[in-house]
C-alpha cells in the first residue's frame, strides 16, 4: 500500500523536523559558536542553525538559482550514470547468471566484483577519462554496475528450478526460458539492486563532483559549505540530496508495483 507508506514517511519526516527545530532552539546561545578547525578557529559557526537562518540561507540559494541549477545538473549526472550503469550491470549479470551453467565458473569472478571499491577508482578515472563529464558519469555508472551485476547474477541463480524444468518439459527453448521464465522471475532481485544502486549513485555523485569541482553541482556545494564551514548550507544540501533520493525511490516503487502485480505482496 504505497499511500500508507507515503503517509508514514511524511509523518516521520515531520517528526524529525520538529525534533530538530526544538533542539536548535534549545541549543541557541548554549552551544559554542567558535570551533577549532585544525589550523585556525572559525568564528560565528552555527552548530545547529535555527529555522530562521535556515530559511534565510534557503531563500538565498533559491533566489540566486544556485540550488535549482545544482539539482538539475547533479540529477542529470546521476540519471545518466544510473541508466548506463544499470544497463551494463544487468546485461552482464544476466549473462554470467544464465550463460554459465557451472556455478563455479562465474561465481569467483562475480565475488571479486563485490569487493571492488569502485569509489576508489576516482583518480584512475581522472587519468583515463580526463576532467570532464565523462569521468563523473562513469564513476557513478561503475558503482551502479557493480551492484546491479550482483543483483542480476544472483537473481538468475535464484530462479526456482521447478519453473525452468516445467518450461523445458513444455518444450521451451533456452531463449524462451530466458525471456519468459528467467527475466520475470529474477525481476524482483534486479529491481531491488537498481533501487539500492540509485541510493548509492547519490553518494557517489558527491565524490564524483570533486573532480574539476565547479558550480552548479550539489557535490561541490556540499564540499564548499564544508570548507568554510557553513552549516546552514550543508544542512540544506544534505536535505536536498535526501529529498532527491526519496523522489527517485518513490518513482521506482511505483514502477515496481506496476511490474509485479503477479506477486503475493507487491512493493
Amino acid at each position: 500500500m504505497p499511500s500508507l507508506r507515503v503517509r508514514r514517511g511524511a509523518v516521520a519526516l515531520l517528526a524529525l523536523a520538529v525534533v530538530y527545530l526544538i533542539a536548535a532552539q534549545v541549543g541557541r546561545g548554549r552551544l559554542p559558536d567558535r570551533i577549532w578547525m585544525g589550523a585556525h578557529y572559525v568564528e560565528n559557526v552555527q552548530l545547529l542553525p535555527t529555522w530562521h537562518s535556515l530559511a534565510e540561507e534557503g531563500a538565498f540559494l533559491l533566489e540566486s538559482g544556485i540550488l535549482l541549477d545544482s539539482v538539475l545538473v547533479s540529477s542529470g549526472r546521476v540519471f545518466i550514470g544510473l541508466l548506463l550503469g544499470s544497463l551494463a550491470g544487468i546485461v552482464l549479470g544476466l549473462l554470467t547468471g544464465w550463460g554459465t551453467r557451472v556455478e563455479s565458473l562465474a561465481d569467483p569472478w562475480v565475488t571479486l566484483f563485490r569487493f571492488t571499491p569502485a569509489l576508489a577508482l576516482l583518480p584512475l578515472y581522472v587519468v583515463w577519462f580526463g576532467y570532464g563529464e565523462a569521468s563523473k558519469v562513469l564513476l557513478i555508472a561503475t558503482n551502479v554496475a557493480v551492484i546491479t551485476l550482483l543483483g542480476a547474477h544472483h537473481g538468475v541463480r535464484a530462479v526456482p528450478r521447478v519453473y525452468l524444468d516445467a518450461a523445458a518439459s513444455l518444450g521451451a527453448s533456452r531463449w524462451l526460458r530466458f525471456r519468459k521464465i528467467v527475466l520475470p522471475a529474477s525481476f524482483p532481485s534486479i529491481f531491488n539492486s537498481v533501487r539500492v544502486a540509485a541510493g548509492l549513485a547519490w553518494v557517489t555523485i558527491v565524490v564524483a563532483e570533486l573532480i574539476d569541482a565547479r558550480m552548479p553541482s550539489l557535490g561541490y556545494l556540499l564540499a564548499l559549505s564544508g570548507a568554510y564551514p557553513r552549516v546552514p548550507t550543508m544542512l540544506i544540501g544534505i536535505a536536498t540530496v535526501g529529498a532527491l533520493v526519496l523522489v527517485f525511490d518513490l518513482l521506482a516503487l511505483l514502477l515496481h508495483a506496476r511490474a509485479t502485480r503477479w506477486m503475493g505482496r507487491a512493493g
Partner: peptide, 12 residues
C-alpha cells in the same frame, strides 16, 4: 508432458 510434484504454475 510432465507435471512436477512441486507447485510449478508460473506466478507471473
Amino acid at each position: 508432458g510432465y507435471v512436477l510434484q512441486e507447485q510449478a504454475i508460473f506466478p507471473w
